[in-house]
Design a protein around this nucleic acid. Structure first.
Lengths: 122, 122
DNA sequence: GGATTAGTTCAACGATCATTGAATTTCAAA
DNA sequence: TTTGAAATTCAATGATCGTTGAACTAATCC
């Protein structure tokens, strides 16, 4: 099981970051991830409602390669989280206004209420 | 001379906004525009160092159609400005952190010092 | 071992993108 | 009215994008 590649945050160009944000599915994933603050609560398979497994894999890679998310491998599962501290250090305030902007978009895909209530990993 | 189309800011989806920001030339234009606060000081032809006229026209249209810039026609010239108030009302804080993020990117195209000194329209 | 689950990889597709260069429009100035 | 400048439009290109479905890995469970 080869380790997952994560770019050094200093190597991420702003234009690449914005390219990764230019998709409704990826913005939906980002918003959902921002709702779960406990790290590693978000497993990839939680997003099956958003798209097919292979398409999800594609979008996860886009977010990861743009330095936005981190992916931890555990068994056959992958856990996602936002690289908040690093992003805020390199692009102060940006990721928060991005998330806030995306959260208000009514057309993004969303997870059900059991997600926000925190009863997912319970 | 047909009037230039500007979308209602409410019709701009976040993903479309980010798509417009996902290009170094457009980010360079945005940063340059943010340096000139007096409206209508920035004429299109000021950016000839960034790209060919036809390519500039393409990028100007992208920014305009994403609701980021406003274009005022006067004679054969076009003057550009950022739609700051509208953007801040719809996406609070976003455009400022975007500009601040882009400003720190050393690889974006830039205008010469005569731009920042304000001696362009003088 | 075999079957199952979680997720990735690959090849293909049509759509959009950034770029080029030539032709065109629109206005101002001589 | 001709000339010139400012900027757009159009057709063409190669590259990348989002999506699909099938094949593939890798870990877990009986």
């Amino acid at each position: 099981m080869k380790p997952v590649f994560h770019p050094d945050i200093e190597d991420v160009a702003p234009a690449d970051l914005f390219a990764a944000l230019a998709d409704p599915i990826r913005l939906g994933i980002l918003v959902a991830l921002s709702d779960v603050n406990e790290v590693d609560k978000a497993r990839c398979s939680h997003f099956t409602a958003f798209a097919s497994p292979s398409l999800l894999s594609y979008h996860f890679a886009k977010l990861r390669e743009a330095g936005i998310t981190r992916m931890r491998v555990e068994g056959t599962s992958r856990y996602l989280s936002i690289r908040r501290e690093e992003l805020n250090q390199r692009f102060p305030g940006l990721i928060d206004s991005v998330i806030e902007t995306a959260r208000r978009d009514p057309n993004l895909p969303r997870l059900g209420p059991e997600w926000l209530s925190g009863s997912v990993g319970a």
